[in-house]
Amino acid sequence: MFKQYIGWKFILASMAVLIIGTTIWFVSNLSRNIQEEERKKVATWVEANRELLRASSEANLNLAVDIVTNNTTIPLILTDETGKILDSRNLDSNRIAQDSRFLASELQAFKKQHPPFIMEVDSKQKLYNYIYYGDSLILRQIRYYPYIQLIVVTLFIAIVLFALSSTNRATQNQVWVGLAKETAHQLGTPLSSMEAWLEILRDNEANASIVTELSKDVDRLKLITDRFSKIGSVPKLEEKDIVEQIQNMTNYIRKRSPQKVMLTVHSIEEELPAMISPPLFDWVVENLLKNALDAMEGKGKIDITIENHPTYITIDVADTGKGIPKLNFEKVFKPGFSTKKRGWGLGLSLAKRIIEEYHRGRLYVRSSELNKGTTFRILLRK
């Protein structure tokens, strides 16, 4: 049971989370250490300034000058007791010259980042200066690094998943096409034989009724073979009357449906031309009608509504069956998904592919309510 959850997706996601978590932990510790080192450097810089103010000895003075001048990375702002800015270091001089409010905004940011160092200027008059400092460029870069890495890893995972999904979809398509064409090929041989036997039966007038019914079945098998042979190849679209096409398929299904089921076609337009592949389009309508019949279990009503719009045509197939839960609106089109005991779950999947890939339209569940019915919509663009 547990093995079902250990797939390549789970392993890939776990590795990504582990890498990101480890990086964030490491960078957080590193940034804290660098921040502490910078605080010590600023403290040393403040102490060096105190030595310069005291000027107690030449040795201390030289050392203090070196310490003060060697700070080229940590930004500093010096203010008096009233908050007036007296000096600044390691800030963008061009910004300072161009924007009079730049130093003030940086000072506010520094106050939020770190507490100031207080330096006594005049012990007699009790005058003090305040040194505020911010994070260096390298510290800011280190802090942003894990988020940049997170974005990169996320993009990498997305690309890998997309590539694997595309490969999987392409493989599935090849299987579908191969299966469909092999089915058409296998049906071809017995069909040829059946047609030959029909010709023999036609020679005897006593077999007239049998020949008529057998011819219908053979024609039906030929239509099914033609449909399967078109899967995987670009079908030739023809201009056909949608209303007549749907009426013909509805009449075919009506003769084979229970007497307690009512099938009705509604259309304001008597003729409505559209570019379709007749065998494949009929297959889609047949699948939708058969699904509706299965959902109603022998009694109910199926309404097929055809509407003409400026740029598209809609065909709604509504039944009064048991309905579909909203969570399954997309699942019903996935291969293998079926609520029927003997269903293969291929009909709606093939129907969606025919409409969306071959006719550049859409097939989706427009609405459904449990124990009240479902409406499937076909949208064909003009």
Score class of each variant (00 low, 15 high):
N70E: 14
F228H: 13
T69E: 09
K290I: 07
A351S: 14
L107V: 06
Y364Q: 11
A208T: 00
P146S: 04
V243S: 11
K111M: 08
S105M: 10
Y252A: 00
Y130H: 07
D99E: 14
S233T: 11
D99A: 08
L63W: 09
S193K: 11
L155W: 05
W283P: 00
Y312M: 05
F337K: 06
S215M: 03
E36A: 15
H309L: 08
K301S: 11
T183A: 07
I315T: 10
S93V: 15
I74L: 04
L78C: 08
K40P: 03
L214I: 06
I242V: 15
G373L: 00
I253G: 02
I96H: 11
L237D: 03
I276V: 15
S338D: 13
V234N: 12
K222V: 13
P335N: 12
E357C: 03
P278D: 01
K222F: 08
V284N: 10
P75K: 07
I276K: 06
E330Y: 07
I118D: 08
S215W: 05
P258H: 01
Y364K: 10
S166A: 11
R169Y: 05
K112Q: 04
E38P: 07
Y358V: 02
S31Y: 05
T375R: 09
T22H: 13
V317A: 09
K236E: 08
A158M: 06
T264M: 07
A170G: 10
D66K: 11
A196E: 04
N70S: 14
L379K: 13
S165P: 11
I96D: 13
R202L: 05
L139A: 08
E205W: 00
S233L: 02
P279E: 02
L164E: 12
R101H: 06
E330M: 09
S166L: 12
E36F: 07
R32G: 05
V65N: 04
T189P: 03
Y147P: 10
V218F: 01
F228W: 10
A180P: 05
E269K: 08
A97N: 09
N248A: 15
Y5L: 11
V234F: 00
F376K: 06
I354M: 02
I142V: 11
V317W: 05
P116L: 00
R256K: 12
L53E: 04
K3Y: 02
I224L: 13
I74S: 06
K255G: 06
N129S: 07
A292P: 13
Y130V: 07
S93W: 02
T305G: 02
T73I: 08
L223R: 10
V153C: 07
I231G: 02
K299D: 04
V265Q: 01
D87I: 08
V42Y: 10
S349H: 10
R353K: 04
V243W: 03
I355G: 03
I142L: 14
V153P: 10
K372Y: 03
P273H: 07
Q4S: 12
L350M: 14
S165N: 15
G232V: 01
I142H: 06
A318K: 13
V365H: 09
